[in-house]
Design a binder for these strands. Sequence first.
RNA 1: UGGGGCGUGGUGAAGAGGUCUAACACACCGGUUUUUGGUACCGGCAUUCGAAGGUUCGAAUCCUUCCGCCCCAGCCA
Length: 560
Amino acid sequence: MTIDSTPPNKNFIRDVIQSDLENGRVDGVVTRFPPEPNGYLHIGHAKSICLNFGVATEFKGRCHLRFDDTNPAREEEEFIEAIKKDVKWLGFDWGEHLYFASDNFEQLYEWALYLIENQLAYVDELSADEIRKYRGTLTNPGEDSPYRDRPTSENLDLFREMRAGKFNEGSRVLRAKIDMKSGNINLRDPVLYRIVNAPHPRTGGAWHIYPTYDFAHGQSDAIELVTHSICTLEFEDHKPLYNWLIENLPTPSQPLQYEFSRLNLTHTVLSKRLLIQLVKDGHVNGWDDPRMPTISGLRRRGVPASALRDFAEKVGVTKSDAIIEVALLEHCVRERLNKSAERRMAVLRPLKVIIENYPEDQTEGLNAINNPETPEAGSRTIPFSRELFIEHEDFMEDPPKKFYRLAPGREVRLRYAYFLTCRDVIKDEWGNVKELRCTYDPKTKGGNAPDGRKVKATMHWVSAKHALAAEVRLYHHLFSSAEPDVTHDVVKEINPNSLERLADCRLEPSLKFIKNGETVQFERLGYFCSDPDSSDSALIFNRTLELRDTWARIKKKPLV
RNA sequence: UGGGGCGUGGUGAAGAGGUCUAACACACCGGUUUUUGGUACCGGCAUUCGAAGGUUCGAAUCCUUCCGCCCCAGCCA
């Protein structure tokens, strides 16, 4: 299992486990991550995965992967596979402990009969609408169903017939007999089983009735001998029901539920409903669109799993509603990538430079360091020639005070190459700068002047005739508002410019061999990775994240 | 107006009667180093803990009242 450098922070879950271990409530830790296979995992799930698996390894226990597949109307095999892939990629291993709530359908059914026999459950023939009416409101108590006190044998017969598929969907449900007047609505005779006639991804057409979350989750925990069932805050109200079922059923163990607050992130949405909508309505290009907060989207974007783990640790685990700034995620990504990503040179918006005093047909190989943070990464050779491309925004004809890149008459350093001086600016008929005529100083090879003269800027570049053409996709926040208002229409909140495609980028030749899934740094620009859409004939790169950019800040400030 | 939960800086989050004129991290603001305006490094950033009372020699931590925010009325999870 994955061990990260970040030391675990203290949180109440760890405290509880620690004391449960010390006072003997449990003698080992078993947790579980219980996704419903009705969509892809997102970064909020990553928090839960890291917590559950993290805490399990920390206390030398284990963590199960269990699919809560109790609603065949929504669940699909595709999601099961995608979820497994994401959990693995995140660096966690459930070993032998892959489970499905559906594995327990037979046992759950037996327990339902057990409840009926103990007069703790009954078959209700009220319609969904009527049940709602009988349930009362938040402030008014509910009323007992007229079917509540039918004889056990009748309940048994009816329930068996439900299983046999004798009834229509919605015509009958099995309900727990608890308390229609409870202040906790979950205790007002909650539905335990409903009739669903949809094929189940695992059990096919074997069943006509399916347990609800409440009737499946806790018992599955108990069957798997889970000791700490960790879930999010909205299940807090369900805990009394969770416990009621465990107390009234002959389960093999008595797990306890603990709740923490779910992750919220600025500039995005993290509700499954909304993410499904973004995908279905085509506002993004699938679940793994690099703008998506899904694990698959982040992976495609070039975010390393280790950064996600760091992030999950840094956000903390509490019960208070919190909105984490994306900046924290971005920090974790940069921190990891700065250490691991090899450096390359690429020009996103090319501006042609002709070095007038450089021999026409000469090419020389220059040595460039792969990663200054990691000397073991070694170095590579990059070609230099008379015609280059530099970044368009690295040149200004009439530069403001604090701009110290290239300008007419000014000398700068080309990284790993030579000092370069701008002699002439060539413009098109519209007055746009389209080419620079420069000279270089042959004595500055490698980037230093023997006379000791200094230069204010070092710029990246690419040799025109050796460069690779590529498309580069730049991503911006999916929502420009930090906290998008999703109460009405998410679509209105979407940032229309979240994807920016640059079709004419130029890369240094070595980028041809970049491994899939490897994220590199384009010097001075940011972190990039090759997109799965990329091919030998059409290179495509995604920008994971920009480097921190002090110059951009200076530009924005007044009084430059 | 029923039940449950939560309130510590811009954002998270430690702290649970004295070591708190409140850790740490992100963000932000300055500065140093630098062949990435990156990285690294140094410094700044809550006399105050939702509010008001009270207990105490002493409170963010205990008590009382009040205020605010979140969740629950699916045969979703």
